[in-house]
Every structure is written in C-alpha cells, then in structure tokens.
C-alpha cells in the first residue's frame, strides 16, 4: 500500500470529510460535497469513482456494508457501493484539517483575511 500524497487534494479532502460522519454511497458523497462547497466542487460519477479507487489503494477508505437505516430506494440498493473511513483515512483528514487550520492562522496573522488586526 502506497502512502497517500500530502497535502491532500481538495477532492480527496472533501471525500474524506463527507465520509467522516457515516458511511455513504457514491451519489450521496457527491451531493454532500456539492452542498458543503456551495457547488464549487462538483464530482461526476467517473471522477468520484476514480478518486475512491485511488483512496482505497492508499488505505484511506474501504468498502462498507450499507447502514441499517439506509433507504432501500427502488431496488437499486444492491448496485450502490458504500464507503467508510479507515483509521488511516480519519488520521489523514485530521492532519489535513490541522494543516489547513495552521495555514488559516498564519494568514490571519498576516492580516490577509481582513477584519481586526
């Protein structure tokens, strides 16, 4: 298993973020990302699948059983693939968030974000 590249790309970061609360399937991840980024980052099925496949290779995510309360939809349940964070993935997300936090703190210190000095 190869080490994931750091810093994480926005796509990888947001996928991890979307999976942090609970396992999700493909479209739910894309919809969550689109929503939290206010449409700035949209991921189509091919792109998302490619990202998930790579992230699986890096050990960040793994396939998961559907949650017990998952909507059964109209019989397409079986085709949906759910993913969840691995411990490595959760750690990578934490490290990336910390890195971003440090970056934001730094920016504030340099007054690049405006507001009170």
């Amino acid at each position: 298993m190869t080490k994931y590249p750091t810093p994480l790309t926005p796509a990888v970061y947001h996928v991890l973020l979307a999976l942090a609360p609970e396992p999700r399937h493909g479209y739910a991840i894309a919809a969550e990302i689109s929503q939290v980024t206010a449409g700035e980052l949209t991921m189509g099925p091919g792109t998302l699948y490619g990202s998930l496949r790579r992230m699986e290779g890096w050990g960040l995510v793994e396939p998961s059983e559907p949650p017990a309360d998952a909507a059964t939809g109209d019989g397409r349940q079986s085709q949906r693939r759910y993913y969840r964070l691995t411990p490595t993935g959760r750690e990578a997300l934490r490290l990336e968030a910390l890195r971003l936090e440090r970056a934001v703190t730094l920016a504030r210190a340099h007054h690049v974000l405006g507001g009170p000095a």
Partner: peptide, 28 residues
C-alpha cells in the same frame, strides 16, 4: 454513451457504480 465509449475493463469495474450514481442523481 460514455460508459460504452470507455475501455471495457473500466466499464466492467465501474459500470454498476456509475449507473447507480446516475439513478440516485436523477431521483434527486
């Protein structure tokens, strides 16, 4: 159309996933 035009290996691997994604997106 895009699935059809894609390499067959990828189509086999990701086809179901993509179709499920599209159906979910349509419902949404």
């Amino acid at each position: 159309l895009f699935l059809w035009a894609a390499p067959s290996g990828w189509r086999r691997e990701a086809g179901g996933y993509v179709r499920a994604w599209v159906e979910d997106a349509i419902r949404d």
